[in-house]
Design a protein around this nucleic acid. Sequence first.
DNA 1: TCTTGAACCTCTAGTCACTAGAGATCGTAT
DNA 2: ATACGATCTCTAGTGACTAGAGGTTCAAGA
Lengths: 138, 138
Amino acid sequence: MFSIGELSRRTNVKVPTIRYYEESGLLDAPERTEGNQRRYDAAGLERLSFIKHARDLGFSIEAIAALIELQGHPDRSCAEANDIATAQLSDVRAKIKRLRALEKELVRISNGCDGGGVTEDCYVLASLSDHGLCERDH
Amino acid sequence: MFSIGELSRRTNVKVPTIRYYEESGLLDAPERTEGNQRRYDAAGLERLSFIKHARDLGFSIEAIAALIELQGHPDRSCAEANDIATAQLSDVRAKIKRLRALEKELVRISNGCDGGGVTEDCYVLASLSDHGLCERDH
DNA sequence: TCTTGAACCTCTAGTCACTAGAGATCGTAT
DNA sequence: ATACGATCTCTAGTGACTAGAGGTTCAAGA
């Protein structure tokens, strides 16, 4: 049995965040000491590691709740869990695509400006004002 | 002179968002009709287009405020505007890098699961539980 | 001119996933 | 016994909006 601070150190999840996960229903309320402090066991650690890993992968709290639900029903089909992961994957891919377009645009904008002039004819500001200078949609 | 709805249509920025930008100081408070409704002119349209474009590129409200400040002082060096754009670029690149790692991980997780089994031995859930299955940091 | 009804107004509160701070209590090492 | 870091609950703040209530104004048709 260990404290919330110890759990925090072991998982790299901040203490208030752990409490927030408990409040959100992702973590079960743990046992308490006589003095009302939380005491966790191996199961709590495992659960929080799961959550942390999923959050690192960009899953929303809602999606994680769904995954935890599935874990609790080992007889349920795996398809559902896979759907959640696949949805997350296409979300990540869409974000990458979008960011790559932005990267291109920002490179173009930055290259037009050597930083030596004055704002009046700054290419950065001109580019942002006049969308017509853009090469593609974003 | 046109209404906030018309401005919204022309810029693809929602009406409450326009009001929010005004409140945040990005947009000057426009003229009003006798009945207290906002009326915009070409300058307002141009300013909002600038903001929209910068937001689309991922600039924060704060960064945009700084860029607008620079626009107002055409004698100021362009270097500052370029710094903001460059910072934004490295931010975007960092995000892309991170998302690519996540993509890889999600592909691996999804491939391990054909969706046909039961949750008990679902690779998706196993992967999320056991970080040791991951190939790299994320 | 009158009457609709869509568009507008302000204000408050909610979203997501935390983060920060106040003020009080607890646990443990000395 | 005391000190002091860790913990507790609670409220409020973040960024960039979004939603809704409840009321007013504008413009077009009769």
